[in-house]
């Protein structure tokens, strides 16, 4: 694990020798790679173990192949129809990413308006909650009626799914600012815009990113739900087709690719978070280091 020395606490230059605490340089690339490996090997090992169990169960013939296909047959299903899978994965990815992006823009804008206007917040919040509690699978057919069989109803469902966690986390983030910081800002003669861009918005990012990570996985679900209701392409369509044909290898392949899509999107958001909030990420990592030792 990360060594305890990553908990840095700097002292005035004169005090260093006396207290035995020295300023440490920021971790270099090799150190960071080692830390990343230390963080990721466990989940990778668990995943590998699951695959081994899957393989063992099917190889031993404990479950009939038409119920659970072996990993080899699943892989074969993908490879033998690689163009088919590539196209449909691309469609779902497109719907998911576009839906996620729209949800971010709309969600953050809505949060900003709500934070700056209590009237808007009071009027909009119940509506938001209402939109959230409606089961998306129940209203998805309506979007098909309204928007047709193209990609747009799927994108709309993805937006709807991803929107809520983004708004909630953005509102919370924008509100958690230290009131003294805002008072300080007004004695600096800062305008609303300056205070927002230099203080409020950056301070809200840790909250926003946790919302984005939830939303990323929801967007995948949204796109697939949209495809279930009425589509002739996309991973949701692949799964429905395979289900109808009792083609479990294709079904399994579709499911795996779908999960992978969610995981990749989640990982991308986390990567962006580490890049945008190194101050926050580094601090969190020292927390982990001290608690796990």
């Amino acid at each position: 694990m990360v060594s305890r020395s990553s908990t840095r606490r700097l002292q005035p230059p004169g005090a260093q020798a006396a207290s035995g605490v020295t300023a440490r340089n920021r971790p270099g690339p090799a150190e960071r790679l080692a830390a990343a490996t230390a963080r990721t090997w466990r989940p990778v090992a668990v995943l590998a173990a699951l695959f081994v169990i899957w393989w063992a169960v099917t190889a031993a013939g404990l479950i009939k192949p038409y119920l659970v296909p072996s990993p080899a047959r699943t892989l074969d299903a993908v490879l033998s129809q690689s163009a088919y899978f590539a196209h449909n994965t691309w469609i779902t990815t497109y719907e998911t990413v576009l839906g996620f992006a729209i949800a971010i823009v709309v969600g953050v804008l809505a949060a900003v308006v709500m934070v700056y206007s209590p009237t808007v917040e009071k009027s909009l919040y119940p509506l938001l909650l209402f939109a959230q509690v409606i089961p998306k699978i129940a209203i998805a057919p309506l979007f098909v009626v309204w928007l047709g069989f193209g990609l747009s109803p799927k994108i709309v469902v993805a937006v709807l799914m991803a929107f809520f966690p983004i708004v909630i986390s953005a509102v919370t983030g924008l509100k958690t600012i230290d009131p003294e910081m805002l008072q300080l800002s007004s004695t600096m003669g800062a305008g609303t815009g300056q205070t927002f861009w230099k203080i409020r918005f950056p301070a809200s990012l840790p909250h926003l990113f946790s919302g984005l990570k939830v939303a990323a996985t929801m967007a995948v679900t949204g796109a697939v739900v949209g495809e279930f209701v009425g589509a002739n392409e996309g991973l949701g369509y692949v799964i429905l087709q395979a289900n109808g044909n009792l083609d479990t290898p294709v079904l399994f392949a579709g499911l795996l690719i779908m999960s992978l899509l969610g995981v990749v999107l989640f990982a991308l958001v986390e990567l962006l978070e580490n890049f945008v909030l190194p101050w926050h990420a580094s601090r969190r990592r020292t927390d982990i280091a001290t608690t796990s030792l």
Binding site: E180, Q183, S186, T187, M188, G189, P202, W279
Partner: peptide
């Protein structure tokens, strides 16, 4: 209204952590 010609120090340093 808020004056600009002052400096203010609070009990908590109120620094921006980023």
């Amino acid at each position: 209204g808020p004056r600009r010609d002052i400096g203010y120090v609070f009990q908590r340093a109120a620094l921006l952590e980023w």
